[in-house]
Amino acid sequence: MAEPFKNLINPAVVQSCGEHLQRAWPGFERPRFEQQALHGLEDLEMKARAMQVADALEATLPRDFDHAASVVEAALAPAATGDELGFAISPAGLAGWIGWPLGEFIARRGLDDPKRGLAALHALTQRFTVEFAIRPFLVHHPDFTLATLTGWLRDPSPHVRRLVSEGSRPRLPWGLQIKQLIRDPRPTLPLLRALQDDPSAYVRRSVANHLNDIAKDHPSIVADWLESHLPGADAQRRQLLRHASRTLLKQGDRRVLSAWGLGQPLAGSARLRLPGPRLNVGDRLALSLTLVSESDQVQPLAIDYVVHHVKANGSTSPKVFKGWKLELAPREEKVLLKHHSLKPVTTRSYHPGEHRIDIQANGQVVAGGSFLLDT
């Protein structure tokens, strides 16, 4: 069985943190820190562990924030020089998952001195990402923080450049939502424009995820972006823009499909075949889709399928899944096969009833069917 994720912050990590902080500042109350940080730690989940360690840091680091930030910086391991993500505490200093509570401490205590707080995050993110910790600065000091991020666009560290994009994502998973950027994401667009051709794939993937965040609330902005930045793009940028388009492609957004040359409806017919009328939770659903072209031209097609899951109250909720991307030759008949798991996952439960399947080709429903699910 895999080690629980929460154990990435464990007693050994806490004790090493105390050791390095005491090395950086001999006056550090290491026994008090460890006692508070370790109390009941084993019973806590991941985020609660990070917050408890941050509480202990608040209780034991200097009250003067500049002094406290200097202690944290002096306790850090040497900065990472590449895209490597395998950060960990070592005899050289602090790095890795202890960075979450360290970043939380800086976010709590540094808001009254944003210049010093952001400087500390600049150092820390080169040992562990501080995308969560920078978000309170964007909420409370938006103009100053965005100006600081602009100054980091040409930083030699890919971890700092990635923070520019990742830390300012409107809907960062697990992170504080930045509601002003959800309402109006335009302040971050110059940052993304500057980073979309970054030499680091680590940075470019963050830009793609940031654009995909924006697409959830402002699809027209991302459609505009594609129409401006996709023509003439090299393979590297096309890969980024494709990843940024994923939500809107699944939703069948007409402008986004058109930008990718997928705007034309299927010229022909589609027929979906499903297995017997009843399936059980845990089964695999076999989808067989037959496409018949009635065109004399090659047809580029993006085909997804929508499962209308039955909810506990008997209503249904659609979920789009990636299907196939292909070119249908003139007058060609093609059979496509796919298996879809009906095994429960942490983000989805299954309930009995009729589940409908819709097939979308270039954003338009072209075929469908249904099956009965028994639990």
Rank of each mutant, 00 (worst) to 15 (best):
L226Q: 06
E227G: 00
L230P: 01
P231S: 08
P231H: 07
A233C: 03
D234P: 05
D234K: 02
A235H: 03
Q239A: 12
Q239L: 12
L240F: 04
R242V: 06
R246E: 07
L249C: 02
L249F: 04
L249V: 10
K250E: 03
D253M: 04
D253V: 00
D253L: 03
R254Q: 15
R254Y: 06
A259W: 00
W260A: 10
W260Y: 08
L266G: 03
L266P: 08
L266F: 03
A267Y: 04
G268W: 12
S269Y: 07
S269G: 13
S269A: 15
A270Y: 08
L272H: 08
R273G: 06
R273H: 11
L274N: 11
P277K: 15
R278C: 12
V281W: 09
D283V: 03
R284G: 11
R284W: 10
A286P: 13
L287R: 14
L289G: 04
L289M: 09
L289P: 02
T290V: 13
V292Y: 03
V292R: 15
S293Q: 10
S295C: 12
D296F: 09
Q297N: 14
Q297I: 12
Q297F: 13
V298R: 15
V298H: 14
Q299P: 13
L301M: 06
A302L: 15
A302E: 09
I303Q: 04
D304E: 14
Y305S: 03
V306G: 10
H308M: 02
H309I: 01
H309G: 00
H309P: 01
H309A: 10
K311T: 14
K311I: 00
A312H: 14
A312N: 09
G314F: 00
S317W: 04
P318S: 05
K319E: 04
V320Y: 02
K322F: 01
G323C: 01
G323K: 00
W324S: 00
W324Q: 00
K325C: 01
K325M: 03
L328T: 05
L328P: 07
A329L: 15
P330V: 04
P330Y: 08
R331F: 15
E332W: 05
E332H: 14
E333K: 14
E333M: 14
K334F: 00
L336S: 08
H340A: 08
S341C: 13
S341Q: 04
L342S: 11
K343W: 08
R348T: 06
Y350S: 10
Y350A: 11
Y350E: 06
H351I: 04
P352F: 09
P352N: 11
G353C: 10
G353D: 12
E354F: 05
H355D: 05
R356G: 00
I357N: 07
Q360F: 08
Q360T: 12
N362F: 07
Q364E: 15
A367V: 05
G368I: 11
G369D: 05
S370Q: 09
